[in-house]
Design a protein around this nucleic acid. Structure first.
Lengths: 191, 191, 191, 191
DNA sequence: TATGAATGAGGCTTCATTCAT
DNA sequence: AATGAATGAAGCCTCATTCAT
């Protein structure tokens, strides 16, 4: 693999995302290339193989998602306000990118991809981890395992985004406010 | 299709569950029959095709799961105690049946299976729905969409079971108590 | 791979041999299965993959060839008469099995198959090796490296068989006698 | 096709030779151009297609080989001395050009290339043919088909070169002398 | 001349399903 | 009921060749 035309890679990525959202993780390459309008052959010019491509796509989407989640989240805000910002950013981003959400859910729960998933270390994730650890050490939030805190916050947010995408709830600002508070209450420490 | 030997069906189901937990939803029939020790041919004697079989398995597992969740949950208990019982029953059941949990996650998030999923109406689910509706109408829990209540309770419970299965948390009775209270607090109405 | 129907394997082997004789070592499986009249799928029921199948075919052909070469070669005959028998057996066998000869030539000279070839140890080959070693130790034939002796005898025989198959020589009994004597003279020790 | 830059052609030829020695006759063009450092596109500027290129390479290598074989082989020498010179020249050349030898073996034994091979008439080959015919007509060597004489001499020499390349024999001058005499004895006429 | 992205037929292999036994 | 050989469409990937730049 030499240097690749990133623009074409983006086009392929987008088509893959659409295909996986439609047909699941095992969407055939034939469907993907049809969706993107390219030929089968050129796919392998830009990616080593299907597996690697999906992994690269995952990394990229995760990076973009994390970046969007942390947007405008200044450390000068109170802990809660930072939390609120991140939560709302995340949910809004996922609602605006439904295929990304579907892909995350697929990829992160596919047992056959578990080894791949374990080997992926998204750098930006550390910002979240540090944020949570800080909250715990400063006695602001409960001293629960990281993954539990994450599930009670981002996890719940993802579920809500999914519900909104599926049309089973309407995520207006009222509900959003309710939910972010509920999520916060589930992890904050009461005095 | 003639009369089905339920015992043989159980054997196949179990093998399918193991295969899907290992290889994902697209586990090939060849792997499933090898796992079960039966022949390919007989598989088609007991099931119409792969798709139908997976759907039947899902229905069965869902039924078993719901049944276990509702066990010992007498209506004479207080609302909270019923909630608590159901939550703990659910989580314990899933931790004890990790392949079932993995299968649920796969099946319920596969876009290609969404039409099938929509067409499935597990009878027992109504008991839950009614339980939640009753809580809302009696002002015990928040007036949120059903799916939101479900995600904040069963959904969180499933995540925790998954974490326990993956070995990232230890679900001892202390953590369990913490979590059931946290889950309850996220839906109960404060006066 | 479980127990296989050997008869069907023979049918496939024969078709493969014909295909390789026609199209070379890289004869596509599509051509092979067309030649044999079977479907693509069943090929993989009898063989793990193309590479393994070709290796198995080679082993089988080599065994058959060596067996035929040693036929009626009693140790009670003089050394020369044994040599003569083997030489003539070999050449006649190859002329009668032209596709086998072509296959040997292809397989044994394909650089990409060299590792495979090195890993194959045909048992019967030891009978030849011992025969040559005995001739050397008893002072009947020259003390040259084994491979040199082999090339001057079997190697030359293979070439002659090839010529006969290609129609560039007619291997009548006169020429055959000439050549076996020539071959013998090239390795025997003169006093 | 316009005028060809012979230097670039040489570079490609060399890379092709290396690739074929490694991967066999079916070495892909992609490997060949990577080996040569040129681009795929330019390959087709210098050659019509893969088949033609390989044929041209074969002709060139054959020419070079024959030229080297005939080097310093003056007609004023005795017949045997000319034979000896040619034999040793040939073997030394092939040992010094192992990839050429491998390529010859591949090309000349590929059934799919047989029609091409038949159509190639290397001019210099006539010098050999005439040399052999002269030997026969003058009663110096046996009256055997040309191809038989060739196999007993050049053919054996090629085998020995191959053995040396493969490291299974050490072609020191002693063994070389032995072999050239053996080869000569196999074709010379005894009085 | 030179590049390398692009094409699509075709290669190897898998897999849901059928069928003779 | 039960087996497993058989099928062929379809999956992933490669490769000779072309073409815009």
């Amino acid at each position: 693999m030499t240097i690749k035309n990133d623009n074409k890679r983006e086009i392929i990525f987008e088509a893959v995302l659409v295909s996986i959202a439609k047909y699941g993780l095992n969407a055939p390459i034939s469907k993907m290339v049809k969706e993107s309008g390219i030929s089968t052959g050129i796919f392998y010019h830009y990616f080593d193989n299907k597996e690697m491509m999906i992994e690269e796509l995952y990394k990229k989407l995760k990076y973009d998602f994390l970046e969007a989640s942390l947007c405008d989240c200044d450390k000068k805000y109170t802990y809660y306000n930072q939390f609120r910002k991140i939560w709302i950013n995340s949910v809004k981003y996922l609602v605006a990118h439904p295929n990304t959400l579907k892909f995350f859910w697929q990829f992160e729960n596919a047992p056959q991809l578990a080894p791949q998933l374990d080997a992926i270390h998204t750098e930006k994730i550390n910002i979240f981890v540090d944020f949570i650890k800080k909250g715990i050490s400063e006695g602001i939030i409960k001293d629960l395992p990281l993954i539990v805190i994450s599930d009670l916050t981002i996890g719940v947010g993802m579920q809500m985004a999914k519900n909104a995408i599926n049309g089973v709830i309407t995520l207006d600002s009222d509900l959003m406010e309710d939910l972010v508070v509920t999520s916060w209450d589930s992890i904050r420490k009461y005095n």
